[in-house]
Design a protein around this nucleic acid. Structure first.
Lengths: 116, 116
DNA sequence: ACAGGTACCTTGTTTCGCATGGTAGCTGAG
DNA sequence: CTCAGCTACCATGCGAAACAAGGTACCTGT
């Protein structure tokens, strides 16, 4: 589909915080996150995206991890958000709302508008 | 400001269509677009961003251009949206709304939610 | 014993915004 | 009249993020 390319660009910068949001008050592992995001419109992604992203979040102290055995299959690395991660998410949410409002405003002007 | 880095990422993919939106039913020149965008929250940008972007839109047939003299200062290259540009904008607007809805949903879950 | 699913990760490529810097015309102050 | 500063255009090279592709290894069922 053509629209996929658009979403690839839109995800930039937001995907990171969407993952952080999914890790609030809930532990998850990478492979699980890929499947979870795959069910959300416009958020389809792959392991090649998620693992580097999680590594970055870990480096920055946004998430903590712990290995745990699976009942069926290889062991999993579980991620959970730190307090710092929760704060970063809250900050981003405020920025996102400002940005979203701006974009909505400009698009409205362009699509219906056509003034003067 | 720290938040600026966030906006840089968020602009990816959307800036192009915001410009296209500003060019609907209205001719503008590059330098003017920079100033116009600079007044919109989260859209502050520079000539180094706008000119390559406009060149790309022109290459793809989204905009047409014409040189015109200025009463004061160097001549200006005016840009206006083609029909193709208008269609691309409409398509993007639909995609943007889907994406925005998804992000809002995920962020809500992460910030207030904290279920189970 | 081996095919297929689960789960982790790395490497190289692409894309886009931006920093930087360069050209040139017009205007106004000294 | 000259030159500083604004307007206006553009090109080049970099960095960050997402992704494609590929690799390893474990477990289960046939």
């Amino acid at each position: 589909m053509v629209a996929e390319k658009v979403f690839t660009q839109l995800r930039r910068g937001t995907l990171e915080y969407c993952v952080l949001a999914l890790l609030q008050g809930e532990e998850r592992y990478g492979f699980d996150l890929v499947k979870e995001l795959g069910e959300i419109d416009g958020m389809v992604t792959t392991e090649g995206t998620i693992y580097p992203l999680l590594a970055r979040l870990r480096r920055e102290g946004m998430v903590e991890t712990s290995w745990r055995e699976s009942e069926s299959g290889p062991p999993r690395r579980y991620y959970r958000s730190t307090a710092e991660g929760g704060q970063a998410l809250a900050d981003f949410t405020a920025d996102w709302e400002r940005f979203r409002t701006s974009v909505d405003g400009i698009l409205r002007r362009g699509n219906e508008g056509r003034r003067k």
